[in-house]
Design a binder for these strands. Structure first.
Lengths: 106, 106
DNA sequence: TTGACCATGTTCATTTGGTGAACGATAATA
DNA sequence: TATTATCGTTCACCAAATGAACATGGTCAA
């Protein structure tokens, strides 16, 4: 349920915007509130992020989702893995497009 | 449940291989037997394919899933639509890769 | 012919995964 | 204080996917 894709996207989103509500996160990722909540809890459980409740800045009620050192490292790994995956997808997509072009000609 | 993607893939698979079991089709598309059965029935219902039971060649028990004229036409349309979609995906993927490369450098 | 297989299509109870309304808690505001 | 707003949390509900189990019909050897 918490795939690498969402793990990566969430860590990325939180790294550049730690004070963000679960609702906003859900909206940005195009997932439901329930799923966002589940994923966040899982990441906290795994020790990738920790939820601080700094009473600061705009968001006072909610938390501050901060990446732990482990989380930062994990994000690097995920980013590299993701890049590799996307490169493979890219190649596959080009082949698929080529085949579709052939097919359209027929 | 029967998305354009599977509609296209099934028509393509059947066009070039009409004598194929639902199990084999499911395996090729990476879906379950139940879903393959559901999709096939839907395509038959819509008149895109018809199930002949020619007692011929290897497959004697099963059917021969043949594209109707309507199905052939539909497949052309789907192919074109699919090509357009893939081209958009291609562009999006290149942007995503570029961003990932930037991020990896950091 | 009979019976034992085998491959096929069909069904459906079960599992899985996602959803968002509703709730309690807390802070800001009138 | 009372009210409003925002947040995280929960969980009953729904849709979709799954694959074991079943029914049918063909094949082949006894």
């Amino acid at each position: 349920m918490l795939t690498d894709e969402y793990r990566y996207k969430i860590l990325k989103e939180l790294q550049q915007d730690p004070d963000i509500s679960q609702r906003e996160l859900a909206k940005r990722l195009g997932i439901s509130l329930g799923k966002a909540n589940f994923c966040l809890k899982a990441l906290i459980e795994k020790g990738s992020i920790k939820a601080d409740n700094f009473k600061n800045s705009a968001n006072k009620t909610g938390y501050l989702y901060l990446l732990t050192p482990k989380g930062i490292e994990e994000k690097v790994t995920l980013t590299q893995r993701f890049l590799q995956r996307k490169l493979r997808e890219h190649e596959a997509l080009e082949q698929e497009i080529e085949q579709l072009r052939k097919e359209v000609k027929t």
